[in-house]
């Protein structure tokens, strides 16, 4: 990026806990800690990717950002203004800040509404007149690579790729500044993914959008992101610019994730993406946190640890050695 990064969205110390009931007569209450003290900054014009395995809290975090999940503690600021807690703006105001594109374009469109009705609904809610609604829907359809007259159709008349284009159109119709992409291409066929990835990158440039992308497909993440945050059991374990995350992954979980990708070209050349013999050691006085996988408990508070800067804004979660 040429100019200095301008923070657009700031997530501070965000936690989301869900009460889980159990025991006789549901009397025992436990807290499932989906997101634990996550802090993130999204700069203007940036694509920040959050990667991690299913259940690590990445989607809960995304829902909090678009206002669909109230945080247990912590705050989110948009352009310096708090959008959580007492001072939070109305849903109508919030809709113009951040929108979301869902993973499954089959499930996220109302099958009984024409595409026009789906796209027009947010505009009407925001008090936009009929004439403008039509021209705006038409413009949006073109922008995502569909024909304006296709808006008369129902979702089932479209292919998966086209439906995802409609999902993108719906997210963008109110001109939001931040778009959360929740696994935007993983439900699509391989030959369609490239179309949608190219479209998303074009729209980002053209409309000066900022993306938060949730994904587990690291080759897509590498292609699209400016910065990457790796989540594990509700915590960010490593974050940094894409170049340094992919070139110098530090945290054992990041390395495990990268090492697990079956990349066809790496498979054939026999080159390993990750060489475990050369795993970087943690800085002295610290150890990686968590040190052991598969031993995590979503119900108890994580051990004290902190994100420590390794180089520039490349940070790794470490715990001081006792």
């Amino acid at each position: 990026m040429d100019s200095a990064p301008e923070p657009l969205l700031r997530v501070e110390d965000l936690s989301v806990h869900f009460p889980v009931q159990g025991g006789v007569f549901n009397r025992r209450r436990k807290m499932l800690r989906a997101v634990n003290n996550v802090s993130l900054t999204l700069n203007k014009g940036e694509c920040l990717s959050i990667v991690g395995e299913s259940g690590c809290g990445k989607s809960t975090l995304a829902l909090s950002i678009v206002g669909l999940q109230a945080p247990t503690s912590g705050s989110i600021h948009f352009e310096g203004r708090p959008i959580t807690g007492k001072a939070q703006p109305s849903r109508i105001e919030r809709a113009r800040m951040a929108q979301i594109v869902f993973q499954d374009p089959y499930a996220s469109l109302n099958p009984r509404q024409t595409v026009f009705t789906s796209l027009a609904a947010p505009l009407r809610l925001h008090g936009i007149g009929n004439g403008e609604v039509e021209s705006r829907v038409e413009e949006m359809m073109r922008l995502v690579g569909l024909k304006p007259d296709q808006a008369k159709r129902f979702p089932h008349e479209f292919s998966g790729g086209q439906r995802q284009r409609i999902g993108i159109a719906r997210a963008l119709i109110l001109n939001p500044k931040v778009v959360v992409l929740d696994e935007p291409v993983s439900a699509l066929d391989v030959s369609i993914r490239a179309q949608i990835i190219n479209l998303l990158l074009e729209l980002k440039e053209r409309l000066r959008l900022s993306y938060i992308m949730i994904s587990h497909d690291l080759s897509v993440v590498e292609h699209m992101s400016d910065r990457v945050a790796v989540m594990y059991f509700g915590q960010i374990v490593e974050t940094g610019r894409w170049e340094s995350i992919f070139a110098n992954p530090m945290h054992p979980y990041t390395r495990r994730l990268l090492g697990a990708i079956p990349d066809p070209f790496a498979e054939l050349s026999g080159k390993k993406l990750i060489d475990e013999a050369q795993a970087p050691r943690p800085p002295s006085g610290y150890d990686y946190h968590p040190q052991q996988f598969d031993r995590q408990d979503v119900y108890s508070a994580p051990q004290p640890s902190q994100l420590v800067a390794i180089a520039g804004d490349h940070c790794v979660r470490l715990a001081p050695v006792a």
Partner: peptide
């Protein structure tokens, strides 16, 4: 059409085919 791991690092971001 596949984004290849390592390709952006080596050649910069290219539009996917």
């Amino acid at each position: 059409s596949l984004p290849r791991l390592g390709s952006r690092g080596a050649h910069g971001r290219k539009r996917l085919q």
